[in-house]
Computed example of a mutant assay.
Amino acid sequence: MNPRSLARQLPLRLSAGAFLLNSGVSKVDADEATAGQLHGFATGTYPFFGKLDAERFTRLLSRVELALAGALLLPVVPAAAAGAGLTAFSLGTLGLYLRTPGMRQEGSLRWTEQGLPLAKDVWMLGIGVSLLVDGLLQCGRRRR
C-alpha cells in the first residue's frame, strides 16, 4: 500500500477497527442472558438466525466482529476487501434498525432513544464504502 493511501485510510480503519475490536471482545464471554437478547433481536429481523442457538450465534457474531477488526487494523489487508466486509456488516446492522419496530420515529428515518445504538452504525457504512471505493480506485490505477 502506498503511503498516501495509508495516510488517507488510517483514521477510517483505526476508528472502525477499534470499535469492532471492543464490540467483538465484549461478546467473547457473553453470558446466557446477553446471548439470548442478541439472538432474539437478530432473529426478529433475520429469521434464518433462528437455526442457531443463542450462544453459538453470539460466538459467531463475536468472531465476525473480531475478523473485521483485524482486517481493518492490519494495513496489509487491501482496502477494498476490508471495505467490502465492513459495508456488508453495517448493512446488516442498519437492516435491524430499519426493520425493528421502535427503532425509528413513526414515518421517519430519525431514531428513537432505543434506535440510537443501531442508527449510529451509518458511520460504519460510510467508512466501508469509502474504503471499498478507494481500494477499487487504487486497483484501477495499478492496472494502467
Rank of each mutant, 00 (worst) to 15 (best):
W123P: 00
A80V: 09
A35M: 06
L66P: 04
R142W: 12
D53E: 06
F19I: 07
A16W: 15
R141M: 05
A82Q: 01
F57M: 02
V122C: 00
T100Q: 05
L72I: 11
Y97L: 02
T112E: 07
G24C: 12
L125P: 00
A16K: 14
L132T: 11
G107E: 05
M124R: 08
F89D: 04
L72Y: 01
R104T: 07
L118T: 02
A67I: 05
S90R: 01
R59Q: 11
L52D: 06
L73R: 06
N2F: 13
G126W: 08
L66R: 01
L91I: 09
L72Q: 02
R99C: 11
A30M: 11
V76P: 03
C139K: 15
T58F: 04
F41S: 02
G85Q: 05
G70I: 01
L125T: 04
D29P: 00
T87S: 06
G107L: 06
V28D: 02
T43G: 05
F19C: 05
N22C: 13
R141H: 09
A119L: 07
L118M: 05
Q105Y: 06
L136E: 11
G92T: 04
K51H: 07
G140L: 15
D29W: 14
P47E: 06
L94F: 04
E32G: 07
T34Y: 08
L125Q: 03
L61I: 03
A35D: 01
F48S: 02
A88Q: 00
L94P: 04
S90C: 03
L136M: 14
S62Q: 07
T100K: 05
A54K: 05
V129N: 06
A81T: 06
G135H: 13
A119N: 05
L6M: 11
G40S: 11
D29K: 09
A69K: 07
T58M: 03
L60S: 10
T58Y: 04
Q9R: 15
L12E: 12
L86S: 01
